[in-house]
Each structure stands twice: as structure tokens, then as C-alpha cells.
Amino acid sequence: MPGQTELHDFPSGNSAFLDSERLSPLNGDSRIFIAVDPGTAARVAGGVWRVEITAARVRSGRFDAWIERDARDPANAFADQSFFVGSDFDPVMTLGTPATSRRGISVANYDHVTVAPSSSSSRGRTRDGRDKPEVAAPGTGIVSSASLGGRPDGLGGVRPVRTEMSGTSMAAPHVSGIVALLLQLDPTLSAAQLRKALLASANPPDGVVPFDAAWGYGRVDAVEAARLLG
């Protein structure tokens, strides 16, 4: 029931925590949160989990659902991640927090070799219709500094100084670097001005006019952004 909290135990030993709000203080919408954990079992059972929602009263509207990142085993290379199946999956409006923040700049990940957005990069718009992500930056096969590089790895070897990774976590630093360069050119720039400069200088691929759910307003262009400030 709306506004209630419940803990449910499954025969497998797994358990589920359910919490709901009739009117969330954040946006006035109804909210349901479900967390599944191993409980007394070694791990959460694999297979298809079905969530049924029964509306006590319907006038208009829709419901949206997202699966947050699982606590995964790095050795599985994301093989143990949860996902929606069949018609339950919608390839757009997959952005989660903090990419949906109103004052932040959301960055999509694209492959700079194939010039195509990564399939793992979340798509816009937000559920309230705002244009997100704003821009796209290279984030596939990026070689960067490795954490604890050069230190012993505990197995008789040494941790690599450089490593190759993919994801929006590799795309966002490209934009952070461009913002730093723009602030060097003009330290008085506000966050709103920086955002406008990034969007106005973005290089949209063919067909991206003016906004695309995967590309945003296009690929970041540091040279053009700097030129706009000249």
C-alpha cells in the first residue's frame, strides 16, 4: 500500500525491501523503491523477477521503472547485471541520477573510432521532458591513468600506470578538461555561461538537429568553444 514499508522473505532465502511514498516531497510524484539482497542465501537467485503494480485508483499518467547498478563481481565483466526483458525495456529515457540533475552537464559516451554512440551510454530525455544528455565526448577505449599505478598488486607484480576503460566515466573528464580551459581563458564565466558555450559549440553528426536522445546536441568541440569566447 502507498506510504508503507515492508520486508519480504523468499523461499530461496533472498529478501526484498519495499518502500513507497504517495507524494514524494522531491517532485510530488508517487515513488516505489525495491531492493533485493541475498538474505540468508549466498547470492541473489538468477532468473526473471516480476514486479506487479496494482493501481488502487487511476485517472491519468504512466509509471516509469529503472534498475540501479548491481553490486557486481568485476570478474564477470557485467555478466551478472540485471536488465529489463522483452517489451519491458525502453531504449530511451534511461538516464539516472546524477545525469538528470537540473544544473549539471550530462555527457554521453561515443566511440571516436566508429563515431557512434556507445550502446551502454544512457539515452535521454528525462522523464519530465528535459534535454539530456547535453553533449557527447569520447569514452570508448580511452587510455588513462590507473589507480595505484606503479604499486605492488599483491600478486608479485606491479599495478599498471595506464589502463584502458570505456564508459561515461571516461567521457565526462573530456568535458571537465574543456571547462577548465575555458575558465583559463575567462575566469569570470558562470556555470550557465559554460553550459551555453559547450552546447553552442557542439558538433552534431548528420541527422542530429537540434537534439538527439543519444548524442545530445552533438560532440564537444574545444576549439570552437574557445573561439566563441574570443
Rank of each mutant, 00 (worst) to 15 (best):
M1V: 07
M1W: 00
Q4C: 03
E6R: 14
N14S: 11
D19W: 14
G28Y: 05
G28I: 06
T40C: 07
T40G: 00
A42F: 06
A45F: 04
G46F: 06
G46I: 06
R50M: 12
R59K: 11
F63W: 15
D64W: 13
A65Q: 13
E68V: 04
D70C: 11
P74F: 09
P74V: 00
A79K: 09
A79G: 12
Q81S: 15
S82E: 03
S87P: 09
F89N: 10
P91Y: 09
V92M: 02
T97N: 13
N109Q: 13
H112Y: 08
V115P: 01
P117F: 00
S119V: 08
R125Q: 01
R130Y: 02
P133R: 15
P138M: 08
T140N: 09
A146P: 12
P152R: 04
D153G: 09
L155S: 00
G156M: 05
V161I: 04
R162K: 11
E164N: 07
E164W: 08
G167R: 08
S169R: 14
A171M: 01
Q184H: 11
T188A: 13
L189C: 06
L189E: 08
R195I: 02
A197K: 08
A197Y: 11
L199I: 15
S201P: 00
S201T: 08
N203V: 05
D206W: 05
V209Q: 10
D212N: 15
A213W: 12
Y217G: 03
V220L: 10
A226N: 00
A226W: 00
R227T: 05
G230W: 02
